[in-house]
Design a protein around this nucleic acid. Structure first.
Lengths: 156, 156
DNA sequence: CAAAATCCTATGAAACCACTAGGATTTATC
DNA sequence: GATAAATCCTAGTGGTTTCATAGGATTTTG
């Protein structure tokens, strides 16, 4: 039930890239490394699946680097996470009904499916642009309060 | 982002126990093993944290076994899962604000918190009694359709 | 006492994760 | 065309966690 550093760092990378490449100029991994605190060598890895998924574009050679392949508001957080670690599937059976070997014993499948949906719902509701915007924090904190059933508890 | 067999088997164990011990008689692990398809030896392990969390009670010796320590409608699914694998925390920082070392770089904490809340919300909304009831499947499938924004798609 | 159960400790195999490393290739600039 | 700066490709390692089995000690009831 953990989200590993792979997914977390990948998201942080995309946020950093979104900030640094706003002018459309390629950004080198060295610069991203400095501004995100992720080791240059590790970034090398994170970048591969993002490229395969066409979320970023690379320009090789001197003065090369990476750019977002699409506008940030067209990149859902789920796209990023799935590129990093594959499809969201808290269990096999949550995603593939056939994968449930113990169907005769086990009534848990719909529960795992429900949890899976709740996670993907969050990830699909927000885009990279949302996380880059000024109002991001306020928006999520508002959502958090709704979940809490604690309406209107100002914290600023 | 996986829910391991530990948590899944523990839940299945509790469901099986709930069914078998409805009369308040202790149920042996041998019987649970047969009816749940989980190896007797492995059940031995799953049972320990459930007992520590006072979700089940053991009666040792001949004709001993386990019983639910409370009525099933007083046992939330979250209680079971947390007993099995500890607090739900998709990331450290989602649960402990201090755990975020990279706060200066990273704006992801509220996102992980939100996902964490969505998961615990499901787990706290339902009880073991819900999963034991006849209407369980229909209820969850209804929830799933709501999430889909596919209102009223009958499937029976 | 003996059977049937819980209870305790250990261990091994496998998978997964985080990260490092070396070096090949590409390409803009001089 | 050489060079520097970047991407790109392939390995591999150390550590942790997880899944599961096993042996045997202890408890308690018939």
């Amino acid at each position: 039930m953990k989200i590993g550093t792979r997914a977390r760092y990948t998201l942080r990378f995309m946020i950093a890239l979104g900030r640094l490449s706003s002018k459309g100029e390629p950004v080198g991994l060295g610069e991203v490394s400095r501004s995100s605190g992720i080791s240059r060598r590790y970034l090398d890895h994170l970048v591969v699946p993002l490229k395969s998924a066409s979320l970023i574009r690379a320009k090789a050679g001197r003065a090369g680097g990476y750019v977002l392949a699409r506008p940030a508001d067209d990149i859902r957080l789920g796209d990023i996470i799935e590129a990093a670690i594959g499809p969201i599937a808290v269990t096999e059976c949550a995603v593939d009904p056939e994968a449930c070997i113990a169907a005769e014993f086990c009534d848990c499948r719909e529960l795992w499916m429900l949890i899976n949906r709740r996670i993907t719902a969050v990830l699909n509701d927000y885009t990279l642009a949302d996380m880059l915007s000024e109002t991001w924090l306020a928006r999520v904190q508002h959502e958090l309060r709704k979940a809490d059933h604690e309406p209107e508890l100002a914290r600023i």
